[in-house]
Amino acid sequence: MSYRILIVDDSPVLRVMLSDMLQELGHQVVAEADSGAAALSAYPEHKPDLVCLDVSLPDISGLEVLPKLRRLDPRAKVLIVTGNDQKTLEAKVKSLGAIGVLHKPFDSLELGAMLAKVAPKAP
């Protein structure tokens, strides 16, 4: 299955890397956002199937963006993509409605496996 994806990450390097991998896996990146505010404005415009959301952002954290996205669209599918591998984070973001957590660094095989794993569970 091919997804239309919004990437939210402050790092332009990570956005390009993730975008390359997603396209290689047959998905379409419809927009990229470098902050929480940009993500909240891009979401209603592009109505993506999936949001890849970083936690550390320059304005508001991904932990604040996530519930806001879910208020905009209760069916929003959000995958957290983060370098933060702390145990408490995964439980926290799942309680906020994220469909999964992908830890950086990752390769396209790990990304593909994660997308395959979370897709059936998505609301």
Partner: peptide
């Protein structure tokens, strides 16, 4: 940087966001 503080945050059962 997140990797180096991971074990510390886990021990305190905290989420530390850099």
């Amino acid at each position: 940087a997140h990797s180096i503080i991971g074990a510390l945050a886990d021990k305190f059962d905290r989420t530390v966001i850099l």
